[in-house]
Simulated scan of single mutants.
Amino acid sequence: EISRKILSGEAVYSEGVRRKKDGNTVHVGIQGVLFPVPEGGARGYGIYSDISERRRNEEEMNRRLLSEAAISSISARLLRESGLLGIPPSLEEMASFTGAKEGFLIEFSTTGEIVRELLFSEGRAVWSTSPHISEVFPESDLCTITQYLWEKGRLLLDERLPAPLCEVDRLWELKRLFGAPLLILPIYSERMVSGWLGLQLPESPLLSSHESYLGMFCDLVGGVLLQQKRRSMTSERARILDGTSRGIVEILGRTLAMKDPYTVGHQFEVARLARAMAERGGYDEAFLERVYYAGLVHDLGKIVIPSSILSKPGRLNTVEFEIIKNHALHGW
């Protein structure tokens, strides 16, 4: 077919595989040329060139592009999902990308205790409801391994332990649980090791590009864990503040009741009606509660009004009336 095209005057370029004399194959580019001969007519020739290096570069570039696309997808999923929910499916994708079959991810508290364990097996990652890794290691061993990860950036459990960890015999228990070679990488949050990622590798050493992608994944997970921790702290602070605020409101309400007995029934009626109106408007329970407590203290400014004016049995004079009108301003 190539010869026919060349003899018809068509420019031809093709690529294929040819076997060399030593039996090895090589990628070649074939360029067909047509030129006249003295006797008249024309002849066609095929010029072969070795394109093996170019093909290797192209294949490497394609692998890199596919890897970057996979990492982008994993990163987007991890950031798109809400909080901790995005970590298990992202770890499943990451393990599939690297070929890992078993693994784990753990998170530490600020005091070095394991607070969460994510176990990966048979293509699925789930948050564990019972301790596994924490049952293997005492706290002192966890600190030793974490310090090693902080200094070295990685730990590979294969044939032997690195010198600083030779006394941590229970490390081999991880190898028994998850297989070997087992690569453990640190997860960082706020310049400290806040967790580990461990994956059983299909081969050792792992491709350097894959290990760098795993490092990027750990950084993203560290960001998610930090965000979750801050949310929990904010929620706890809000709960404490809310409880404190309620206590203050109740104290102020009792103080106002002692100041003006008439206000007691009035403030509860206003609070009840305000809550009922907000409920009718379709607001959530948190808002209804805030409205209720606001109703309890809506006359709070009366605390600064003299009792002689608040409890005066007769009609208020002009000056007294001006004073009592300012209770709203004092309350604000």
Rank of each mutant, 00 (worst) to 15 (best):
K5S: 10
P89G: 00
A257Y: 12
V270W: 06
I71G: 03
R254M: 12
L316H: 08
N326C: 06
R246Y: 06
R239G: 09
Y213N: 06
L7V: 04
E39F: 01
I133E: 07
S307H: 08
S194E: 08
L256K: 01
P186M: 03
F137I: 05
H266L: 15
V270A: 06
I114N: 09
G301S: 09
L177F: 05
R239C: 07
I309K: 10
A238T: 15
S128K: 06
E250R: 14
Y262Q: 14
A238E: 15
D242A: 15
P202L: 05
P164Y: 00
A163W: 06
I248E: 12
H330R: 14
A286F: 08
V28A: 00
I303N: 02
V12A: 07
R170M: 13
V37E: 04
N326P: 04
A278M: 00
Y148E: 04
Q147W: 02
I106Q: 08
V33M: 10
L78M: 10
S121I: 04
L241W: 10
V319S: 08
Y48D: 09
L201I: 09
E190H: 12
V17L: 13
L296I: 11
V224K: 09
Q228S: 12
Y283N: 09
G301R: 06
R19H: 03
S67Y: 01
I71W: 03
G9W: 05
F137H: 01
E289R: 14
M233D: 15
V224S: 07
C143W: 13
S90Q: 08
G32P: 07
P261L: 00
L207P: 05
I74Q: 03
M192R: 14
L329W: 13
E139W: 01
S189F: 01
G222H: 02
E167K: 13
G243M: 14
E92L: 07
Q31A: 12
W172V: 01
Q227C: 11
I309L: 10
V33A: 05
G247F: 12
T318W: 13
S3L: 13
Q147C: 10
K101D: 08
G314A: 13
M277E: 10
E236I: 12
G314V: 07
A163R: 14
I309N: 02
L252G: 06
E113R: 12
E269W: 13
P261D: 05
